[in-house]
Amino acid sequence: MLLEVRDLHVEFRTRDGVAKAVNGVDYQVDAGETLAVLGESGSGKSVTAQAVMGILDMPPGRITGGEVLFRGRDLLTLKEDERRRVRGAEMAMIFQDALSSLNPVLSVGDQLGEMFVVHRGMSKKDARARAVELMDRVRIPAARERVKQYPHQFSGGMRQRIMIAMALALEPALIIADEPTTALDVTVQAQVMELLAELRREYRMGLILITHDLGVVADVADRIAVMYAGRIVESAPVHDLYKAPAHPYTRGLLDSVPRLDLKGRDLCAIKGLPPNLANVPPGCAFHPRCPMARDVCRTDVPPLYEVSETRGSACHFWRECLHG
C-alpha cells in the first residue's frame, strides 16, 4: 500500500471553541490508483490532505491522533527536515487556484527549475532545460519561449498545467490534487483532467483527487470516499456508488445534481445546512438533515459498516438505503 491514513484527527482552535475538522478518517491509496475524496466545503477533505502533505497551519490546527503511513513509514513522527525531503520529491500537491499558488515575480521557468536546484542540486542551466522538458510534457505550446514568461502571461488552463508540471517534476509516487479544475471552464477542465489521468497512468502514480464535483469523479476515479463533517461516510468503487449509494448523504448529493430525466421538476435538495464543526450533532452528524433518521441515529455514532468486501457505509440503515 502506497499511502494509508489511519484514524486521523485534526482540530482547530477557534473563537467558538474547538472545531473538529477531521474526525477519525481512514483511507488507502495504492500505486496507480485514483481515490476521489468527495465532500462539500467544511467536510474536512482539504484539511485531511494538508495533514497528509504536512502543510497544515499549526497552530491553529493540531493533529490530535492517527497515523499517516507512506510506504510503511509514519510521516507524522518525522522531523520537519525529513518531512521536507518527502514533500515534493515523493508526494506532491496541486492546488485549486494556480494564480495565487505561483509566485508572480518569478518566471515559470525559475519556479519549475527551483524544484531541481533545491531537491536535486542541479545547476541553474540544467534546471532550466528540465523545466522546458516538463512544460513540453504537460503540452504547453512553444515551451522553449514560454519558459521565460511570468504566471500572469498564461491563461487559467495553462497555469494549471504549470502546477501539474511542478508536481510531476521529481516524479513523485503520490499526487494530491485539491480541486484542480474548479476554477477552470468546462472545455479546459476536460483537457486538464484528461492530462492528469494520462500522466498518472504513464508514471503509475497514486492520485488523490479532492473535489465537490460528482461529474469529474465519475469520469476518472477508481474509488471514492465521501466525507461529511470530518468523517468518511461512504467508501466504495466508483461505479458501485453511482449505481446504488449506501448512505443517505451520498444519495442526497446524487439527487441534487440536475439530470436530464428530471428537468423542469424540483430537485431533491438535501434540507438544512452542513453542521458547524465546533458543534457537531451527537450520534450520526447527518441525522438532522437525513430523511431516514430514527432514534438510534441521534444517540449512536455509526461505525463504517462493511457493505461488501470493497465498500463501507457509516449508516445504521445502509441496507435500507442500498435497496430503497
Binding site: V186, A190, Y242
Partner: peptide, 26 residues
C-alpha cells in the same frame, strides 16, 4: 464540444455512448 466536455453524473452505462470532443487550447 461544450456538451461533451461536461462530466455527467451517470447511474448506468450510458457514458459509454457519449461522444468525446477535446478542444485544443484556450
Amino acid at each position: 464540444a461544450l456538451l461533451s466536455a461536461v462530466p455527467e453524473v451517470a447511474m448506468d452505462d450510458e457514458t459509454e455512448n457519449r461522444e468525446r470532443i477535446r478542444l485544443y487550447g484556450d
